[in-house]
Write a protein that binds this DNA or RNA. Structure first.
Lengths: 122, 122
DNA sequence: GTAGTGGTACGAGTTTAGTCGAACTATGGC
DNA sequence: GCCATAGTTCGACTAAACTCGTACCACTAC
């Protein structure tokens, strides 16, 4: 599965998109915070699915089909965004997420491969 | 600093050493647990120092010069060992630690480089 | 207008993690 | 035996995190 990390295209945001919600700059990403936010299985699932199954540009949190209340999902997506792992843009009603691939590869090379190789506990 | 990860010799334990304290097998290492245990700055410091400054085989926890009570250090070393990041052997009075380099590189390639590249927050 | 949708914000309950003091064990030197 | 040393274990406190219900907001369709 690791080959995906390198073949996964570093998607550039098309022009005219909504601005991303507030997020830490690439230089401000902290390894300990990124690790902490990825230590949760649910968040690891979210990021892995974004990496492997996001065909289009990005996805709203309903797309993941996670069986949790909305307030729980909001909590986890916010944690991922505040740690700098994902960015989110507002599209009318929906708030769509994508992995900050370029920034993560620049700051923490190899991290994406670790996420791709992960398999949830049985 | 990243070059160290590949040049760092994968030390084999000499024969006749004390057995390691109980620790998870290589195949049982869980990424989410390893990330959780590395999300703490103090533990990240411990592992990084073991990787970069351990000249001999391994080191007791007093060697690190960490300004914390012994019970706190015991807690963190135990967390690292139970997550599979370090192994510990009893040498008379001392309990010496080393990073499980071979196992970590086998299961989570690239992780060691992330630890080596880390710089503590100012 | 109303209703439905995608999501946030707040707050509470529960759990987990970090910190540390005090008491304890085990080893080695004398 | 005594004493110092290296570390553990226990318990308590505190802080943080996860979960989730409720209320709320913004937008769209009708």
């Amino acid at each position: 599965m690791r080959a995906l990390a390198t073949t996964y295209r570093a998607q550039e945001a098309p022009a005219g998109l909504p601005e991303p919600l507030p997020q830490p700059a690439c230089d401000d990403l902290r390894l300990e915070q990124v690790l902490a936010v990825l230590a949760d299985p649910l968040r690891l699932t979210i990021v892995q699915r974004l990496l492997t199954q996001a065909e289009r540009y990005d996805h709203a949190c309903g797309w993941f089909g996670l069986d949790r209340p909305k307030s729980t999902l909001t909590h986890h997506f916010k944690a991922l965004r505040e740690a700098g792992v994902i960015s989110q843009r507002q599209y009318g009603l929906e708030r769509r997420s994508r992995v900050r691939l370029n920034d993560l590869n620049a700051r923490f090379p190899g991290l994406i491969d670790l996420i791709l190789d992960w398999t949830p506990a049985t």
